Computed example of a mutant assay.
Amino acid sequence: MYTAHFGLRELPFGITPDTSFFFGSPGSQEALNTLLVAARSGEGFIKITGEVGTGKTLLCRKFLSTLGPEFVTAYIPNPYQEPRALMLALADELEIALERDVDQHRLLKSITERLMQLAGDGRQVLLCIDEAQAIPVESLEALRLLTNLETEKRKLLQIVLFGQPELNRKLELQSIRQLAQRITFHYHLGPLSRDDLDFYLAHRLRVAGFGGARLFSRAAVARLYRASGGVPRLVNILAHKALMLCYGQGRQQVERLHVNAAASDTIATSRRVPRFAAWRQAAAGALLAGVVAGITWVWMR
């Protein structure tokens, strides 16, 4: 790709959550600190919300990698499951050996015994659930009942919910009001600010091995912010495409026109382009398509 051209060891703007690229912006660092303090308190539920693409999964993985050996962690990335399936997923994460056709009573008893055993060993069990807005209400209630298990000092199981704002509306339901009352810590993760975006780009480029000066011009950064709204996932997509176009033209600095082309080629951001600039949008998209075709031809050769 363009790594050698810009002196990079790896691609700097992938959309796969990679904790080595975690950027401690004021918002994300405050969210991480909230999680760490809440986890050590050993109480109830913790909730982290944020719009699509604001970095909830990356924050979750960074949080899990930061915890010490006194924690036993479980991670469920797909919670759209009925209560029994969710309990089986938790048992699997806690390495509980179960019979093939274990009944519900034995399943819950096995989980309880495992939690008691870990508490006796001085370990704290923490379950992180990603995409928590997708959890069925019945499964949320099953999780709440699990958090009833406790010693005289603390809960046997802590649960951290990472979800989109729809999770808040689900928690307002009368049927699960007891769970909402048990959320002792919460944080809403927002987009990057304009100033944060400049540092975010520099941080990811530095982690990827870039040792030069400014790779994105100030005009390019300003356009990137307007096109992405500061949402990290969109920033990564646009920055990656802009670097491809810059490389295809043999240039060493990303300019505004490169970001314009990237934005016009991205469904989630093309609507941000002003109507009077539609002709620029079409021209930029054609330019990007031509550059990508040229790069592909070189690879095939």
Rank of each mutant, 00 (worst) to 15 (best):
V291C: 02
L11A: 11
G163H: 01
G250Y: 06
Q253N: 07
I267M: 10
R206H: 12
R218T: 12
Q124D: 09
Q81E: 10
S41K: 15
A268T: 08
E93S: 13
G68I: 09
R218K: 12
L161T: 08
E95Q: 13
Q117C: 14
A132H: 07
Q117V: 11
T49H: 04
E95V: 06
V254L: 03
A222K: 11
I183Y: 05
V231Y: 04
V72L: 06
T112Q: 13
G290D: 09
L64W: 05
V254N: 02
A268P: 02
L238W: 04
L90R: 01
A208F: 07
L224S: 01
L192P: 00
M300P: 09
A227H: 03
L245K: 00
L287Y: 05
T112M: 12
L88F: 05
S65A: 15
Y247S: 10
A283C: 06
Q117Y: 14
V52W: 06
A262I: 00
D195L: 13
P12A: 14
L149R: 12
V207Q: 09
L94T: 02
V259E: 04
K155T: 08
L197E: 01
R280C: 07
I76H: 10
H258T: 03
D198C: 10
L11W: 14
N236I: 03
H240V: 00
T54S: 07
L157T: 01
G250R: 10
T34C: 11
F13N: 00
I135A: 06
L126K: 02
F63T: 08
Q174R: 15
W279E: 14
V137D: 10
V37E: 09
V292K: 10
K170P: 01
I176A: 00
V37N: 12
R169T: 15
I111F: 00
F21K: 01
E99K: 15
D265I: 03
S228F: 01
G55T: 03
A263G: 02
R123M: 15
T54V: 10
G120P: 05
S20C: 09
I76F: 13
G230M: 03
V102M: 09
D195N: 13
R301S: 13
V298K: 14
E141G: 01
L238P: 00
F210P: 00
E10W: 10
E99V: 11
V221G: 00
G14K: 08
L287H: 13
A242P: 00
L245I: 01
R61H: 10
L146S: 06
V298H: 14
L126D: 05
L11E: 15
Q117M: 13
L94Y: 09
Y2M: 09
Q104K: 10
L287K: 11
H105I: 12
D18N: 07
F162T: 01
